[in-house]
């Protein structure tokens, strides 16, 4: 899933300064699960905005709503009536959702309430770690199912490097060295010999080097395109 973290309130406040009627809009998918963009956070952020205005002697109207997924035109359409009277929308969906909003409602100012950070998951309740870098050319088959691209500080394809100390990464003692983990995993699977195969330089053009990326499923494309 996509993981996002809340923006500092002061930044949000600055963005929204001067607007009188604001819609705080959550998204019911990834950002709900990572507790930054769900209905609960909509309520909290709206309360903060109102209270902040009150503390400064002003008054704003805050509308609270959420969509099932902000990255679908049909779901975004559902909130047309709600946002039409608003001066601004504070979307706490990931960057995809924010852009869908901005594209669908070009006359309304749309602002991001979260920083979209990575693709990952909760390794335990409340703790999220990056697990995928979206490189477009997956090598997990050769690394015991552990991704060095997203989990190694240097994205090394042939590790570990000399900075691996007692299973930890030299960059941060909190970060496990993924190449150490890959070694252990392959050992468990009796595939340690795999470590000796050098992974050749990767074609990075399938990844972040090649924006914007696009995927077409020919068999599903309708004649009349959505949007």
């Amino acid at each position: 899933m996509i993981v996002a973290s809340s923006k500092p309130f002061q930044e949000i406040k600055q963005m929204l300064s001067g607007f009188k009627k604001i819609c705080v809009l959550g998204c019911g998918s990834c950002v709900t699960i990572c507790h930054t963009g769900g209905e609960k956070q909509v309520t909290e952020l709206a309360a903060q905005l109102r209270l902040s205005a009150k503390l400064e002697g002003g008054q704003i109207e805050v509308v609270e709503d959420s969509t099932l997924r902000q990255c679908e035109w049909e779901f975004v359409e559902d909130i047309k009536e709600i946002v039409k009277d608003c001066d601004a929308v504070l979307s706490i969906a990931c960057g995809v959702g924010v852009q869908y909003m901005a594209e669908r409602f070009p006359k309304i100012r749309v602002f991001p309430g979260v920083n979209t950070t990575f693709m990952g998951g909760p390794i335990e309740q409340g703790i999220f770690w990056e697990r995928c870098a979206g490189c477009g050319n997956c090598i997990l088959a050769t690394t015991g199912g552990l991704c060095p691209v997203s989990r190694c500080a240097k994205s090394l394809l042939n590790g570990p490097c000399g900075g691996s100390q007692n299973g930890k990464c030299e960059v941060s003692q909190e970060t496990p060295c993924v190449w150490n983990q890959i070694y252990d995993q392959l050992d468990t699977q009796q595939l340690l010999a795999t470590m000796e195969t050098i992974i050749p330089p990767k074609d990075w053009t399938t990844g972040m080097e090649n924006h914007p990326r696009k995927m077409i499923l020919e068999h599903l494309v309708m004649k009349k395109q959505i949007s």
Partner: peptide, 11 residues
């Protein structure tokens, strides 16, 4: 009790 209710009290 939801933390947002504490904010609501201030509001």
């Amino acid at each position: 009790v939801d933390p947002s209710l504490y904010l609501k009290a201030f509001e």
